[in-house]
């Protein structure tokens, strides 16, 4: 299995959002901490969220526990980045 290249949590979140939502790099680069996610982006349904969490685990070599996932996590891009930064620092 290939090794992960170094990737910051924020870059990983942007890359996964790009893949899941089918956006291009410029569109995802325009995401700010206040950009709303769940509920605001129709492509980001609960199935997509399932894939997103597993992809973040894979790309950042972290494990996300069931009880760490709540609605607030996906409210904004900033919340999601802050969570992954916290997990990556553990």
């Amino acid at each position: 299995m290939s090794e992960n290249l170094d990737l910051t949590p924020e870059a990983a979140v942007r890359a996964v959002m790009q893949d899941i939502l089918g956006l291009d790099a410029e569109q995802v680069a325009a995401f700010t901490p206040d950009t709303e996610l769940f509920g605001a982006l129709p492509e980001l349904d609960s199935m997509a969220v399932a894939g997103l969490l597993t992809e973040l685990e894979d790309r950042l070599d972290i494990m996300i526990e069931d009880d760490e996932v709540d609605g607030e996590l996906f409210e904004t891009f900033g919340n999601l980045v802050a969570f992954t930064e916290m997990k990556a620092a553990e």
Binding site: V16, D19, E43, E55
Partner: peptide, 24 residues
């Protein structure tokens, strides 16, 4: 092993395109 250009994994080759398996 081929990986997408957007992937964080190293591969023998990187390909352009999108990760269709992650789409809704």
């Amino acid at each position: 092993t081929a990986q997408l250009e957007t992937s964080a994994h190293t591969g023998d080759i990187k390909l352009p395109g999108s990760a269709l398996w992650l789409r809704a």
